[in-house]
Design a binder for these strands. Structure first.
Lengths: 157, 157
DNA sequence: AACAACATATAAGAGCTCTGATATCATGGG
DNA sequence: CCCATGATATCAGAGCTCTTATATGTTGTT
């Protein structure tokens, strides 16, 4: 069963193309774009998840780990791992809550802000390529669909 | 910065909604759907990646680990991990290639076929919910977009 | 026959993500 | 006042995914 076997389609062909399962296409697209982002950010050693976290902390300075998890649709444990790696890299700072003894505020460090700025330039280029060849109306449909999938209640019967 | 802070939007609101970055929305949607699938398959202990692998092996019996990686847009190493876990669970069988001394054919075991059948019923339900509230034309646009993102050359300048 | 080029498999190491469990802290009802 | 409830943080374990590196097998060229 080598690469020349005509019964195995390539990505975008046959069942793996526009006639395939939406869930499968979604999985493939997200994986491909994630890889593309991480290749673009490889020079800085920043992952897609880290870029998302940096963006969130930049937009909402002083949030907690639990806040970040809610924003990024992650579990607090996952967020904690990402925050730990970013802290180890010196990109963010943990500050204890003034009153609450458990909460820790998160803020970008100066180097974290500079890093985010550099990453943004590259990711924005990719973001722009994401809509090439699609009308405004089609893009609207895509956006509405993605939001609908992301907000569908997972605990539904 | 508790949950009541009005400056932090929920998923689907503000910048996290239809006006947000497409890459971010894609990441969110794929994560949410992956979780939904794995919750539906939790009873069987099957992950989304394993379901995809089982489906591929069922559709193209006798493929190799490298074939599977190409089909699923994964590295051979990643595919090898998934295959290893499925083999350990007894869902698939490795057969040595008749001629080529290195290649191993993959096939579902009887229990693997039965498992896939049960998983399919549940996942197909979710797949059906994925298009609720969207016209055929909109769905076409979404499919075309997902395929375009998945097949965009990652090595592009 | 020997070597180069390519394909396949696999191991190691890192990061992401989940579930489950544990500990700490805050708040409200008895 | 004390405790139940809920929020926060964190540890441990598992699976997925990548990169890098290594070993083995096949094929075509010289």
């Amino acid at each position: 069963m080598g690469k020349g076997n005509p019964s195995i389609p390539s990505a975008g062909e046959g069942k793996r193309g526009e006639q395939g399962y939406l869930g499968y296409l979604l999985r493939q697209a997200a994986g491909a774009y994630r890889l593309k982002v991480e290749r673009a950010l490889d020079e800085f050693g920043v992952t897609q998840a880290q870029f998302a976290a940096l963006t969130m902390i930049s937009a909402y300075p002083g949030l907690s780990n639990a806040d970040l998890a809610r924003l990024a649709v992650l579990t607090p444990q996952t967020a904690s791992v990402i925050v730990g790696n970013l802290e180890r890299a010196g990109s963010l700072i943990r500050r204890p809550h003034a009153v609450h003894g458990r909460i820790q505020h998160l803020d970008l460090s100066d180097s974290g802000r500079a890093l985010l700025k550099k990453c943004r330039e590259r990711v924005y280029k990719l973001e722009g390529e994401l809509t090439a060849g699609f009308s405004a109306e089609e893009e609207r449909a895509v956006r509405r669909w993605l939001v609908a999938v992301a907000t569908a209640d997972a605990a539904q019967p």
